[in-house]
Amino acid sequence: MLRLSIIRAIKSGVNNFFRNGWLSITSVSVVSLTLFVISFLMSIVFVSNKLFTEIRNKIGVNVYLNEKADKEIASQMMEEISLMGGVTEVEYTDKKEALTSFKQKVKENDIIIQAIDELRENPLEDFISIKVKDPRKYEIIEGKLITGEFKDYILKVDYSEHKTEINNLDKILSSVTKAGLILIVFLVFVAVMVVLNSIRLTMYTHKIEIEIMRLVGAGNWFIKLPFITEGALYGLAASILVTLSLYPLAILLASALENSGLQLNPILLLNQTIIFAFLIHLLIGIALGIFSSYVAIQRYLRI
């Protein structure tokens, strides 16, 4: 009997969803909008994190060596550096290579090429470039190097030149993440209120139906279940809609990023995360629909 009642209640919820076409469209739109806003903000936080990581990876610190340092010394230094915590990359470039690559970089600019050629000597130095996972490590590494056993071979470490940039980047990243999260929480709160009220209005049109259900002796759960089912269907429909709408958004973003030189392909990224995104939308959407319906129906169940 219980199973029969549950099946009936769910069936009636599904029927209501299709019978009340306009009300369903309104509710699905509101839930969709909410999901879209959440999804959009989450994407911004995600993409900006990715972008910053990429930019950060491009930043390195170079240790310039003086005349006294030969290749032997350089490789000893590299060994020591790579043993320091958090170092991901250590690379030695001698001044010949440095000059070749510099010339390659500025080959379009005749004046610079000419100026270099006029200098009889190579104006560059040998250097070791270092990359670390966490930019805060640079300061420690710099400290260790200029006070350690190789201090006499070091001409300069260019960390100080990058110091502000690195720190700024870090600050921006953490502010974007923080602001994004605060905005998400705030918007979710606003969205829940909107969804709640819109579903409450929907429920108002069911007031008589609920009254009749009570009159013929329907138990509270028998009354609630169709509406909860309807709420869950709002969430389901909205999550499908929003997940699909991410594609046009990714295409737009892709064309915006095309010439930025960043290794980020939003379409590929979306393809990789689409199932995860759908599940998240489904979870939030259904939870939102059920919660709102449940709260909205509660006020008609007194007595």
Partner: peptide, 10 residues
């Protein structure tokens, strides 16, 4: 029939 459905009739 609604009144009977509510009562869980077959």
């Amino acid at each position: 029939s609604f009144a009977l459905e509510v009562a869980g009739e077959k």
